[in-house]
Design a protein around this nucleic acid. Sequence first.
DNA 1: GGCGATAATCTCGCTCAGCGAGATATTAGC
DNA 2: GCTAATATCTCGCTGAGCGAGATTATCGCC
Lengths: 159, 159
Amino acid sequence: MHDEANHAAKPEPDNLRLVHLLRAVTVEFGLRQADFAARNGMHPTDVRALICLLDAARAGEAATAGLLGTRLGLNSAGTTAVIDRLERLGHVARVRDDHDRRRILLRVEPAAIRLGRDFFGPLIDGVLQVLDSFDPAEREIVRRFLTATHTVFAMEPRP
Amino acid sequence: MHDEANHAAKPEPDNLRLVHLLRAVTVEFGLRQADFAARNGMHPTDVRALICLLDAARAGEAATAGLLGTRLGLNSAGTTAVIDRLERLGHVARVRDDHDRRRILLRVEPAAIRLGRDFFGPLIDGVLQVLDSFDPAEREIVRRFLTATHTVFAMEPRP
DNA sequence: GGCGATAATCTCGCTCAGCGAGATATTAGC
DNA sequence: GCTAATATCTCGCTGAGCGAGATTATCGCC
């Protein structure tokens, strides 16, 4: 691999350009999360935790502390700390599970949801507008691409 | 506003499902970065720094310490720390810019590039395979979608 | 051609996120 | 019941990243 920083643009294959484009989108999204975190006195991890909890709720899964830690790649001490921070800010509430009283269920408070909507709403709307400019057949292609890509990323090992 | 009497699962609009799918991809990608970092004795920030430096090289930009800090959202102290860590591991080298001797240019060492290729290669190949299963017109649609989405994310404020 | 203003990076001291180890509370198995 | 397994929390520690300020190099001005 040569260093082609200096002169004429290298002939990067189109498909590889698409991969880089996808990565650029993910990086940009990460920066947005960080912005949101900083603006609301949180840390990026806290934002990821909220997203994770909302995803779990949407999927109908029980959002326990343990699940959260696993998804975020934190150990139990770190997980407790995240929940403490979110609880202190009033964004989540700890609720003992009555069926298994060892477990802590996490409920995202409406205020937190509103906060997220205020910040991410415009971004989501932007993407929805993009999608609206596509016809159904094209959207189906996008869906196929995203689904397949997600499968590729989700497939491999989880240490 | 239509029926759908089934319990918990809400009737999420197709376009919104695509947005969530895109987010899921970005989240998965972030986890991969974290895996790579942990497996190589680095922190996620360090990996993002390497990616940033490689992107700059690809784009033909001069990869200075300052640019890196800006892109990562770190202040100068944190930026120095990141570079120190990467240098200690032998992944980047500090090179004084001869045209402006205040500046430090960062060169990513070949060993680091190889390390990244070993880990991310299979993932990239996976996505390339996905793309290969699309015909050129379809790839163009994917490209349009990713470009437009990237624009949406990159558009808004930088605090 | 030297001199303050400006810019790029680094140093120092501090706070707090996340880890490892172990404590505590609850449930399941025999 | 008693023991093993599971879920969460507590404690002490390391180190990532911040703010403030020092350091070194460049530029515009006279």
